[in-house]
């Protein structure tokens, strides 16, 4: 660990070149997952490629019809962005739930996505708002929907030599809002036992016209739930619709038993959180 070489490229192309030439090199963003894994002997990278000196990977900007979050932007910087908080409060909430205040000063959005934990807090929130990953490789940039980015625990759709540069979130339409909730045994500092993100749009009469529901920590990757969304669309997000959202989330969950929760518990509670998040999103949309 101590002797692993360290490099801090200044540009995306430089980083991509370094990654392309060394399959075992690892991108170091916040390091809050990676350093723990390397110290624990889970990973043995050949080199650190620190991407926090690449301007393209840093900061939050609202441009045209989308919000761009640099992949190496720490969670705290994202959460503190007033316009982002206003536009996608659920995504902001998710960044505010990652670890402690200290961890939020380090942990990045890109790191949360690339670590590809099934329990990553930002993933369901980003899926709900239809976010896209902007990926750079030697041949240029491509976009991958967040729901397709993680392909399994610890695995992503990134090819060797590719770098996650940013996440692009479409600006929400009128009367559209999102919310993210997770369940942990304590109030802070835990990995999500289950998580649920919901974004929805209300028509002028209060009927839901569009919805996206995503759940985390209940399958090898976060899941986008068509049925749960269908339960909301056309409804007034009333108790009956919320009960169907809960049932759909519970039915879709494929959790495991582990030290953080049981199958039975995760299945039940993911439904509870999905309906609660939907209710919060609907309230927020009402107020817009």
């Amino acid at each position: 660990m101590q002797s692993i070489p360290y490099q801090a490229p200044a540009s995306v192309s430089e980083a991509v070149a370094l990654l392309g030439s060394d399959a075992e090199a690892r991108v170091l963003a916040g390091g809050t997952d990676l350093l723990v894994q390397v110290r624990g002997g889970v990973r043995k990278p050949s080199a650190w490629i620190d991407v926090k000196r690449i301007p393209d990977l840093l900061g939050v900007s609202v441009e045209g019809d989308s919000i761009r979050i640099g992949a190496a932007t720490p969670a705290a910087v994202i959460f503190e962005h007033p316009e982002l908080q206003r536009l996608v409060p659920g995504v902001a909430e998710a960044t505010d739930l990652i670890g402690s205040t200290q961890i939020q000063g380090r942990a990045t959005l890109g790191g949360n996505l690339c670590n590809a934990s099934p329990a990553a807090d930002t993933t369901p929130a980003l899926i709900a708002v239809g976010a896209q990953c902007i990926v750079a490789g030697s041949g240029g940039e491509r976009e991958i929907a967040v729901e397709a980015f993680a392909t399994g625990p610890g695995q992503t759709a990134l090819a060797q030599g590719e770098l996650l540069v940013a996440v692009r979130i479409p600006k929400p339409a009128a009367r559209t809002a999102d919310a993210y909730l997770r369940l942990i045994p304590r109030t802070e500092m835990d990995i999500a036992v289950v998580g649920a993100g919901v974004a929805l749009t209300l028509g002028d009469d209060g009927t839901c016209t569009q919805a996206r529901v995503a759940i985390g920590a209940v399958a090898p990757t976060a899941l986008l739930l068509e049925e749960a969304a269908a339960a909301l669309v056309g409804s007034r997000v009333d108790d009956d619709a919320l009960a169907r959202v809960a049932a759909a989330a519970t039915a879709a969950a494929r959790p495991i038993d582990d030290k953080r929760g049981t199958i039975a518990y995760r299945r039940k509670v993911v439904g509870v959180l999905a309906k609660r998040a939907a209710a919060i999103a609907a309230n927020r949309a009402q107020e817009r």
């Binding site: 304590r186 802070e188 500092m189 835990d190 990995i191 030290k259």
Partner: peptide, 16 residues
């Protein structure tokens, strides 16, 4: 022991 760290050995934090 599957939880030999402060992440999963859950001692009370200030907000608890």
């Amino acid at each position: 022991v599957e939880n030999p760290g402060f992440l999963d050995y859950r001692m009370p934090v200030a907000s608890d």
